[in-house]
């Protein structure tokens, strides 16, 4: 995973709540067996509308998505995170994320930042009035900064440490191999098995 320390970029204000993962990446894109090439599928239905915010020329190259509450609801498809990253987003800001999407994002180095809706409103107003306004997402300081806005955010220390260092979860877990083996030795015999012993 790519490390995330701090990022500054222009933003896309997405004034919608309950943006589900079917909107982020529709199911027909899920037939692909790679982690890349999903950028054209991102918000595919909405992008057919030339007025959709992502299609506006002033948003080209923006890297921070500022979305309404309950972003990433629905399906567990990690493809939603890959689509956002493939398109070029480095961070997503919302007042509330769905659990599975949030977990997936943090495992891929896409920083999902939870801020109060009042701050999200302020970021929307700023970036709608001035599309060139830059937003900084600083994981080291746990802070989002933009013109006239400074807001701190929470992220558990363990997730932050893994993101700052770009660490791979599996290799961290495998350091605990003796614990896993010990647990397995004590599992009851009645537990289900998919293969006959």
């Amino acid at each position: 995973m790519e490390a995330f320390t701090t990022h500054t970029g222009r933003a896309v204000p997405l004034r919608r709540s309950n943006v589900d993962t079917d909107q982020i990446i529709p199911a027909h894109w899920l037939k692909k067996v790679t982690r890349d090439g999903f950028e054209d599928g991102l918000f595919e239905a909405w992008r057919k509308d030339p007025e959709f915010v992502l299609n506006r020329p002033e948003r080209t190259g923006a890297t921070v998505l500022v979305a309404g509450p309950d972003f990433g609801t629905g399906s567990s498809r990690e493809h939603a995170v890959w689509a956002l990253q493939n398109y070029g987003f480095k961070a997503v800001i919302s007042s509330r994320f769905a659990d599975i999407f949030r977990g997936n994002s943090l495992k891929n180095g896409l920083l999902t930042v939870v801020l109060d809706q009042k701050v999200v409103d302020a970021l929307w107003e700023l970036t709608e009035q001035d599309p060139t306004a830059e937003v900084t997402v600083d994981l080291e300081a746990r802070e989002v900064r933009a013109q006239g806005i400074v807001a701190s955010f929470e992220l558990d220390e363990n997730s932050r440490w893994r993101l700052l260092n770009g660490l791979d979860d599996i290799s961290i877990t495998l350091r605990n191999e003796p614990d896993i083996a010990a647990y397995e030795a004590g599992r009851p015999g009645y537990k289900p098995r998919t293969l006959q012993a």
Binding site: E78, V81, N104, I170, T173, L174, I180
Partner: peptide, 14 residues
């Protein structure tokens, strides 16, 4: 439900 990174994690470590 889990994402694909977690699917890989469970395959490798249970």
């Amino acid at each position: 439900g889990i994402g694909t990174s977690q699917v890989e994690h469970v395959l490798a470590t249970q």
